[in-house]
Protein backbone atom coordinates (compact mmCIF):
# COMPACT_ATOMS: atom_id res chain seq x y z
CA UNK A 1 0.00 0.00 0.00
CA UNK A 2 1.31 3.43 -0.95
CA UNK A 3 0.07 6.44 1.02
CA UNK A 4 0.89 10.05 0.18
CA UNK A 5 0.66 12.60 2.97
CA UNK A 6 0.57 16.18 1.77
CA UNK A 7 2.07 18.70 4.15
CA UNK A 8 2.45 22.45 4.00
CA UNK A 9 4.80 24.66 5.91
CA UNK A 10 2.96 27.61 7.45
CA UNK A 11 3.85 30.53 9.73
CA UNK A 12 3.61 29.50 13.39
CA UNK A 13 1.06 32.11 14.27
CA UNK A 14 -2.20 33.55 13.18
CA UNK A 15 -0.88 36.90 14.31
CA UNK A 16 0.44 38.05 10.95
CA UNK A 17 0.51 41.71 10.08
CA UNK A 18 0.39 43.67 6.84
CA UNK A 19 3.17 46.12 6.06
CA UNK A 20 1.11 49.24 5.51
CA UNK A 21 3.74 50.77 3.23
CA UNK A 22 4.11 47.82 0.83
CA UNK A 23 0.75 46.11 1.37
CA UNK A 24 2.44 42.73 1.71
CA UNK A 25 2.53 40.25 4.57
CA UNK A 26 5.21 40.65 7.16
CA UNK A 27 6.66 37.16 7.50
CA UNK A 28 10.05 38.07 8.85
CA UNK A 29 10.89 36.65 12.23
CA UNK A 30 7.82 34.41 12.21
CA UNK A 31 8.87 30.79 12.74
CA UNK A 32 7.50 28.20 10.30
CA UNK A 33 5.87 24.93 11.29
CA UNK A 34 3.98 22.05 9.73
CA UNK A 35 0.33 22.96 9.21
CA UNK A 36 -1.47 21.39 12.22
CA UNK A 37 -4.24 19.88 10.08
CA UNK A 38 -1.56 18.20 7.94
CA UNK A 39 0.16 16.81 11.01
CA UNK A 40 -3.06 15.10 12.02
CA UNK A 41 -3.52 13.71 8.48
CA UNK A 42 0.08 12.50 8.45
CA UNK A 43 -0.21 10.81 11.85
CA UNK A 44 -3.40 9.08 10.70
CA UNK A 45 -1.55 8.02 7.55
CA UNK A 46 1.32 6.57 9.57
CA UNK A 47 -1.18 4.65 11.67
CA UNK A 48 -2.86 3.27 8.54
CA UNK A 49 0.50 2.27 7.10
CA UNK A 50 1.27 0.35 10.28
CA UNK A 51 -2.19 -1.24 10.17
CA UNK A 52 -1.65 -2.28 6.55
CA UNK A 53 1.47 -4.18 7.59
CA UNK A 54 4.43 -5.38 5.55
CA UNK A 55 5.29 -3.49 2.37
CA UNK A 56 3.17 -0.45 3.12
CA UNK A 57 4.84 2.90 2.65
CA UNK A 58 4.00 6.52 3.37
CA UNK A 59 5.56 9.37 1.39
CA UNK A 60 5.38 12.94 2.66
CA UNK A 61 4.92 15.43 -0.17
CA UNK A 62 5.19 19.18 -0.01
CA UNK A 63 5.46 22.10 -2.37
CA UNK A 64 7.25 25.22 -1.27
CA UNK A 65 10.51 27.11 -1.03
CA UNK A 66 13.70 25.19 -0.03
CA UNK A 67 13.05 26.07 3.64
CA UNK A 68 9.97 23.83 3.57
CA UNK A 69 12.46 20.97 3.97
CA UNK A 70 12.14 21.39 7.74
CA UNK A 71 8.41 20.52 7.63
CA UNK A 72 9.31 17.35 5.70
CA UNK A 73 12.05 16.51 8.19
CA UNK A 74 9.40 16.63 10.87
CA UNK A 75 7.16 14.42 8.74
CA UNK A 76 9.99 11.88 8.52
CA UNK A 77 10.52 12.09 12.27
CA UNK A 78 6.80 11.46 12.77
CA UNK A 79 7.05 8.26 10.78
CA UNK A 80 6.98 9.01 7.04
CA UNK A 81 9.26 6.66 5.10
CA UNK A 82 10.32 9.06 2.42
CA UNK A 83 9.87 12.76 1.62
CA UNK A 84 9.68 14.81 -1.55
CA UNK A 85 9.79 18.59 -1.77
CA UNK A 86 8.50 20.14 -4.97
CA UNK A 87 10.57 23.25 -5.23
CA UNK A 88 11.11 25.38 -8.29
CA UNK A 89 10.80 29.07 -9.03
CA UNK A 90 8.22 28.09 -11.66
CA UNK A 91 5.93 26.90 -8.83
CA UNK A 92 5.99 30.23 -6.99
CA UNK A 93 2.83 32.26 -6.63
CA UNK A 94 0.52 29.31 -7.21
CA UNK A 95 -3.10 29.57 -6.11
CA UNK A 96 -5.06 26.47 -5.08
CA UNK A 97 -5.71 25.45 -8.68
CA UNK A 98 -2.05 25.56 -9.72
CA UNK A 99 -0.92 24.03 -6.41
CA UNK A 100 -3.34 21.13 -6.69
CA UNK A 101 -2.34 20.62 -10.33
CA UNK A 102 1.37 20.48 -9.44
CA UNK A 103 0.84 18.16 -6.48
CA UNK A 104 -1.39 15.91 -8.62
CA UNK A 105 1.33 15.67 -11.27
CA UNK A 106 3.88 14.74 -8.63
CA UNK A 107 1.54 12.02 -7.33
CA UNK A 108 1.19 10.87 -10.92
CA UNK A 109 4.98 10.51 -11.11
CA UNK A 110 4.92 8.20 -8.07
CA UNK A 111 2.97 5.51 -9.89
CA UNK A 112 0.04 3.60 -8.48
CA UNK A 113 -0.99 5.09 -5.18
CA UNK A 114 -3.70 3.92 -2.79
CA UNK A 115 -4.42 6.83 -0.53
CA UNK A 116 -3.74 10.55 -0.29
CA UNK A 117 -3.99 12.14 3.14
CA UNK A 118 -4.33 15.93 3.30
CA UNK A 119 -5.16 18.34 6.09
CA UNK A 120 -8.62 19.87 5.78
CA UNK A 121 -7.06 23.27 5.25
CA UNK A 122 -3.90 25.20 5.94
CA UNK A 123 -4.00 27.72 8.75
CA UNK A 124 -2.54 30.48 6.58
CA UNK A 125 -4.85 30.38 3.56
CA UNK A 126 -7.78 28.61 5.26
CA UNK A 127 -9.24 27.64 1.85
CA UNK A 128 -9.76 23.85 2.18
CA UNK A 129 -9.59 23.72 -1.63
CA UNK A 130 -6.26 22.12 -2.50
CA UNK A 131 -7.31 18.63 -1.36
CA UNK A 132 -10.60 18.34 -3.30
CA UNK A 133 -9.02 20.02 -6.34
CA UNK A 134 -6.23 17.47 -6.28
CA UNK A 135 -8.79 14.68 -6.04
CA UNK A 136 -10.53 16.05 -9.11
CA UNK A 137 -7.26 16.33 -11.07
CA UNK A 138 -6.49 12.71 -10.20
CA UNK A 139 -10.10 11.56 -10.77
CA UNK A 140 -10.19 10.17 -7.24
CA UNK A 141 -13.16 10.08 -4.88
CA UNK A 142 -12.76 12.48 -1.97
CA UNK A 143 -13.83 12.35 1.64
CA UNK A 144 -13.43 15.76 3.27
CA UNK A 145 -13.65 16.70 6.97
CA UNK A 146 -12.46 13.21 8.00
CA UNK A 147 -12.00 12.76 11.75
CA UNK A 148 -11.45 9.02 12.11
CA UNK A 149 -10.28 6.51 9.55
CA UNK A 150 -10.09 2.74 9.73
CA UNK A 151 -8.80 0.35 7.12
CA UNK A 152 -10.17 -3.06 6.22
CA UNK A 153 -8.40 -4.59 3.25
CA UNK A 154 -8.89 -2.10 0.43
CA UNK A 155 -11.81 -0.30 2.07
CA UNK A 156 -11.64 2.73 4.31
CA UNK A 157 -14.35 3.56 6.82
CA UNK A 158 -14.38 7.25 7.57
CA UNK A 159 -16.20 9.31 10.17
CA UNK A 160 -16.59 12.78 8.70
CA UNK A 161 -18.09 16.04 9.87
CA UNK A 162 -21.10 17.40 8.02
CA UNK A 163 -23.10 20.57 8.45
CA UNK A 164 -25.45 18.78 10.81
CA UNK A 165 -23.18 16.39 12.66
CA UNK A 166 -21.32 13.39 11.35
CA UNK A 167 -21.69 10.64 8.81
CA UNK A 168 -19.92 7.34 8.38
CA UNK A 169 -18.91 6.53 4.82
CA UNK A 170 -17.07 3.70 3.16
CA UNK A 171 -14.75 4.19 0.23
CA UNK A 172 -12.67 1.72 -1.67
CA UNK A 173 -9.13 2.89 -2.36
CA UNK A 174 -7.66 4.68 -4.21
CA UNK A 175 -9.11 7.78 -2.58
CA UNK A 176 -8.19 11.17 -1.17
CA UNK A 177 -9.06 12.26 2.36
CA UNK A 178 -8.90 15.71 3.91
CA UNK A 179 -8.63 15.42 7.66
CA UNK A 180 -9.53 17.56 10.64
CA UNK A 181 -8.43 16.59 14.14
CA UNK A 182 -11.10 15.51 16.64
CA UNK A 183 -11.27 17.45 19.90
CA UNK A 184 -9.16 14.91 21.77
CA UNK A 185 -6.25 14.83 19.30
CA UNK A 186 -2.88 15.62 20.83
CA UNK A 187 -0.16 16.17 18.21
CA UNK A 188 2.90 13.98 18.73
CA UNK A 189 6.28 15.42 19.46
CA UNK A 190 8.87 13.16 17.85
CA UNK A 191 11.57 11.92 20.24
CA UNK A 192 15.17 12.97 19.64
CA UNK A 193 16.07 9.53 18.31
CA UNK A 194 13.35 9.83 15.64
CA UNK A 195 14.67 13.24 14.60
CA UNK A 196 18.15 11.75 14.14
CA UNK A 197 16.74 8.79 12.24
CA UNK A 198 14.74 11.12 9.98
CA UNK A 199 17.98 12.57 8.62
CA UNK A 200 18.90 9.17 7.21
CA UNK A 201 15.60 8.60 5.46
CA UNK A 202 15.30 9.27 1.70
CA UNK A 203 14.66 12.95 0.98
CA UNK A 204 14.42 14.40 -2.53
CA UNK A 205 13.81 17.77 -4.09
CA UNK A 206 11.97 17.80 -7.40
CA UNK A 207 11.80 20.67 -9.85
CA UNK A 208 9.32 21.17 -12.66
CA UNK A 209 11.39 19.02 -15.04
CA UNK A 210 10.93 16.01 -12.77
CA UNK A 211 7.17 15.91 -13.16
CA UNK A 212 5.18 15.92 -16.36
CA UNK A 213 3.56 19.37 -16.32
CA UNK A 214 2.26 21.97 -18.69
CA UNK A 215 4.40 25.06 -17.93
CA UNK A 216 1.40 27.33 -18.49
CA UNK A 217 -0.38 25.70 -15.55
CA UNK A 218 2.32 26.31 -12.95
CA UNK A 219 2.83 29.00 -10.36
CA UNK A 220 1.49 32.49 -10.80
CA UNK A 221 1.07 31.98 -14.53
CA UNK A 222 -1.16 28.96 -14.02
CA UNK A 223 -3.28 30.58 -11.32
CA UNK A 224 -6.75 31.75 -12.33
CA UNK A 225 -7.09 33.83 -9.15
CA UNK A 226 -5.08 36.94 -8.49
CA UNK A 227 -4.60 38.67 -5.18
CA UNK A 228 -5.37 42.32 -5.84
CA UNK A 229 -4.68 43.59 -2.37
CA UNK A 230 -4.10 42.42 1.20
CA UNK A 231 -5.04 44.58 4.13
CA UNK A 232 -5.63 44.49 7.86
CA UNK A 233 -9.26 43.96 8.76
CA UNK A 234 -11.05 47.07 9.98
CA UNK A 235 -10.74 47.22 13.74
CA UNK A 236 -13.87 47.08 15.81
CA UNK A 237 -14.63 50.31 17.61
CA UNK A 238 -13.24 50.74 21.09
CA UNK A 239 -15.35 48.67 23.44
CA UNK A 240 -17.10 50.10 26.46
CA UNK A 241 -16.59 48.51 29.87
CA UNK A 242 -19.67 48.54 32.05
CA UNK A 243 -18.91 48.96 35.73
CA UNK A 244 -22.00 48.89 37.93
CA UNK A 245 -21.83 48.48 41.71
CA UNK A 246 -23.84 45.29 41.69
CA UNK A 247 -24.82 42.54 39.31
CA UNK A 248 -28.28 44.06 39.04
CA UNK A 249 -26.88 47.50 38.26
CA UNK A 250 -24.51 46.25 35.58
CA UNK A 251 -27.24 44.07 34.06
CA UNK A 252 -29.53 47.09 33.94
CA UNK A 253 -26.82 49.15 32.32
CA UNK A 254 -26.19 46.47 29.69
CA UNK A 255 -29.87 46.15 28.89
CA UNK A 256 -30.14 49.91 28.43
CA UNK A 257 -27.18 50.19 26.03
CA UNK A 258 -28.42 47.23 24.00
CA UNK A 259 -31.95 48.61 23.87
CA UNK A 260 -30.65 52.05 22.89
CA UNK A 261 -28.58 50.54 20.11
CA UNK A 262 -31.65 48.72 18.82
CA UNK A 263 -30.10 45.33 19.56
CA UNK A 264 -32.82 44.30 22.00
Amino acid sequence: MLIIACVKQVPDTSDVKVDSATGTLVREGVPAVMNPFDQFALEEGVRLRDAAGEGAEIVALSMGPPQARSALMKALALGADRAILLTDRAFAGADTWATSYTLARAVGALGKIDLIMCGLQAVDGDTAQTGPEMAQHLRLPQVTYAERVTLDGKTLTVKRQTDTGYEIVEVRMPALLTCTPPADFVPSTPPFSAIIKAKKKPYEEWGAEKINTDADKLGLKGSPTQVKRVFSPPKRGQGVMLEGNSAAAVAGELFQVLAKGGVL
Partner: peptide, 13 residues
Protein backbone atom coordinates in the same frame (compact mmCIF):
# COMPACT_ATOMS: atom_id res chain seq x y z
CA UNK B 1 -10.20 36.61 5.47
CA UNK B 2 -6.96 34.63 5.69
CA UNK B 3 -4.54 33.80 8.50
CA UNK B 4 -7.42 33.06 10.82
CA UNK B 5 -9.03 36.43 10.17
CA UNK B 6 -5.95 38.56 10.80
CA UNK B 7 -5.58 39.48 7.15
CA UNK B 8 -8.14 40.35 4.51
CA UNK B 9 -7.49 39.85 0.81
CA UNK B 10 -9.22 41.08 -2.33
CA UNK B 11 -9.17 38.43 -5.06
CA UNK B 12 -10.09 38.67 -8.73
CA UNK B 13 -10.28 36.15 -11.60
Amino acid sequence: PAFGGNIMADIIC
